[in-house]
Amino acid sequence: MTAPAPDTTAPLALPGFDDAPSVSKDEPHYLGHRARLKQRFLEAGPEALPDYELMELVLCRTLPRMDVKPLAKQLIATFGSFADVLAAPYERLTEIKGIKDATATDFKVIEAAARRFAKGAIGKRAVLSSWSAVLDYCRTAMAFDDVERFRILFLDKKNGLIADEVQQSGTVDHTPVYPREVVRRALELRASALILVHNHPSGDPTPSRADIEMTRTIADIAKPLGIELHDHVIVGREGHASFRGLRLI
């Protein structure tokens, strides 16, 4: 007898979820909620879910036998948003009651995947022709860091990405930047242009006087050597600031 063909119309299953559309009276109440949440995610998309419900979906993977809704809400309340939770230091995550190593690791894997995905969007095209993708990448990579980091995107003559490097890491409100070292590295890579990026852990991306002076120094050193400074972008939780857009360079 020929085996029946598999049912290709069955709904997509996600690990950690009960696929049944309903649950019996003897099963925990949260299983029905979880199944409905999964269906809403699959049918309406992630934008239909607030941060805490998206967090529930993540928590269900490593905590399949408990009601994770209170924990999801606690995480959002503690750190501020879904993105803030993923970007939180591993040690701070595991301080939250109910968050064990497996769950914290899941968060960091998702964070790394988001950064890799965002970087892929700018890796194979002219950077300046996909400026929104550059901004998305910069925010994903740095906006939620708890210390300042100074990053440089090195570009070729066609504005393709040669290298993406974090040059310096500092404290919560300062990163040491050495303009001549920035230009020296650009010469090593034979870069024709630069985009500078750093973050403000305070959340406010407004450039400081020191930011402006450092940027202009780099531009002044680079220009005679045939290296153009396209922009300096500051990212923070509250948005971003472009020096080119603000006419600071």
Rank of each mutant, 00 (worst) to 15 (best):
T2A: 07
T2F: 14
P4K: 10
P6Y: 06
L14R: 13
D18C: 15
P21C: 12
V23Q: 11
K25G: 14
K25I: 12
P28D: 12
H29P: 11
L31Y: 05
K38H: 05
Q39E: 14
F41S: 07
F41E: 05
P46V: 11
E47I: 01
E47L: 05
L49P: 05
D51L: 03
Y52R: 14
E53V: 15
E53N: 15
E56N: 09
C60Q: 03
R61L: 14
T62L: 03
L63E: 03
P64H: 04
R65I: 13
R65N: 15
M66H: 04
D67G: 11
D67Y: 11
V68K: 03
K69Y: 12
K73L: 07
L75H: 02
L75C: 10
L75E: 06
I76E: 13
A77P: 15
F79P: 11
G80P: 02
A83S: 12
A83N: 13
D84H: 06
D84A: 14
I96L: 06
T103A: 07
A104M: 13
D106F: 10
D106V: 13
K108G: 00
E111Y: 05
A113C: 10
A118G: 05
A118P: 02
K119T: 02
A121R: 08
G123S: 15
V127M: 08
T140I: 01
M142K: 06
A143C: 11
F144W: 13
V147Y: 10
E148R: 10
E148F: 01
E148K: 03
I152G: 00
I152Y: 03
I152C: 12
F154D: 00
Q167C: 09
G170H: 03
D173G: 15
H174V: 14
H174Y: 08
T175P: 07
P176T: 14
P176Q: 09
P179G: 01
E181V: 06
V182L: 04
L187P: 02
S192R: 09
L194E: 00
L196T: 04
N199V: 10
H200W: 09
P201K: 06
P205V: 01
R209T: 08
A210Y: 10
D211Y: 01
I212N: 05
M214K: 00
T215S: 15
T215I: 12
T217A: 07
I218E: 02
H230G: 01
H230W: 04
G239M: 02
H240K: 02
A241T: 12
R247V: 10
I249D: 01
